[in-house]
Amino acid sequence: MRCPFCAHENSQVKDSRPTEDNAAIRRRRQCESCGARFTTFERVQLREITVVKSDDSREPFARGKIEQSVTLACRKRGIAQERLDQLVSGIQRQIETLGESEVPSKAIGEMVMDGLRHLDSVAYIRFASVYRDFSEARDFEEFASSVQEMSGRDVDGD
């Protein structure tokens, strides 16, 4: 594994353990050249997945993009990192179990929306504001009121 600090090709594994959800192996490594320590994660990849963007361009699936979006939406919400990792792992499993080599970005966005809706309503609205391209305060108001109506139904059992 290449060192992220000095780009040396070799590092030693100092510790390995499964992540909380057993979806990956966490490895602590130390660079043989500069001595820096860093962490890597090893995950199962069933197949190469290509994301089809709305403009029909294609790019390889990148778990990091989902992690970044979820983390940004949940910033300062007090949600444990473990729960965010579980959400992202769950979305990745959904994508991989679709059995398709190409997945529309819209489908991935909807999976993230669904996951955030169940996790935190503010994070859900934050993500939706970017994903659905809100342009006015009215867009926020309408979406937030629909979220309140949904959560009211969930509580009442409707």
Rank of each mutant, 00 (worst) to 15 (best):
D114H: 12
K14Q: 06
E141T: 13
D156A: 15
F134S: 11
K76D: 10
L72M: 07
G115Q: 11
S105H: 12
E48Q: 12
I66S: 06
D21N: 03
S151W: 11
L119H: 07
Y124S: 08
R26L: 07
I95S: 06
Q81K: 13
E149T: 13
F41N: 02
R17T: 09
H8L: 08
C6V: 11
I66M: 04
R75F: 02
S105N: 07
R77I: 09
K106W: 06
L116S: 07
L119F: 11
G35E: 14
N10V: 01
R27P: 07
R77T: 12
I49F: 02
K65A: 01
H118I: 04
C74Q: 02
I108V: 05
E100V: 09
T50E: 05
P60L: 10
C74N: 04
S146I: 02
A107I: 03
E59T: 03
I95Q: 00
A144G: 10
S11Q: 07
S146M: 09
D120Q: 04
S16I: 03
V44P: 07
R2W: 13
L98I: 09
S54Y: 07
C6R: 12
I25R: 03
Q12W: 00
I125K: 02
G157T: 09
P18W: 01
T19V: 03
F41E: 01
F134V: 12
V103F: 05
M150F: 14
A7W: 14
R63T: 04
V51C: 01
S57E: 10
V155M: 15
E136W: 08
S33H: 15
K76A: 08
D139L: 03
F5L: 14
L116E: 00
G115E: 11
D156I: 00
E82C: 09
V51Y: 01
A128G: 01
D133V: 10
M1C: 14
L84T: 03
V147P: 13
S105D: 09
S11W: 01
D85M: 05
M111R: 11
F61I: 01
Q45Y: 13
E110F: 09
G64D: 10
I49Q: 10
M113K: 06
L46T: 14
D15C: 03
E59M: 10
S105Q: 11
E20W: 01
V52P: 04
Q45N: 15
V51D: 04
V155I: 15
V122Y: 00
P18Y: 02
R43K: 14
S54A: 05
A24P: 05
V122P: 06
F38E: 10
G152A: 14
Q45L: 15
S33Q: 14
R37D: 05
C74E: 06
G99F: 05
I79W: 11
R93H: 13
S101F: 05
A73F: 06
K106A: 04
G90T: 08
V155S: 15
D21T: 00
C3P: 06
D114W: 02
S101G: 04
V103L: 11
C6K: 12
Q68D: 06
A36T: 15
A107R: 00
Q30W: 03
S105V: 10
I125L: 14
D55R: 11
F127A: 08
K14F: 07
